[in-house]
Amino acid sequence: MLHIVNKSATDRGSLESCLRMATQGSAVLLIEDAVYAATTGNAAAAKIQAAKAGLKIYALGPDLAARGMAARVLDGVNVVDYGGFVDLVAEHSNCQSWL
């Protein structure tokens, strides 16, 4: 399953709700304001670091760049473009947007 999160983890609880419900081996894609959680120094970065053990974590590159965060991405987070986003949706049998 692909989980899509779009809100900043330092503003809302959707990333935490997602990580709680994502089963082992699932993919989590951070888009829009959610990408901040995948950057060094962010208070939520530890949650992403911990989640990497059981989940595949992706962040949308254009959203990182638009927020000046392209150079601060955590190690082990896979940066994808919109084409990569499309591939992730295609590769997983279903998806859930944590609005």
Partner: peptide, 19 residues
């Protein structure tokens, strides 16, 4: 909200990839 922009770019990329 960015939602409609994200959806548009997703749709355009999906079509470009042949979906």
């Amino acid at each position: 909200h960015q939602a409609s922009d994200s959806a548009y770019l997703f749709a355009r990329s999906a079509i470009e990839k042949g979906y």
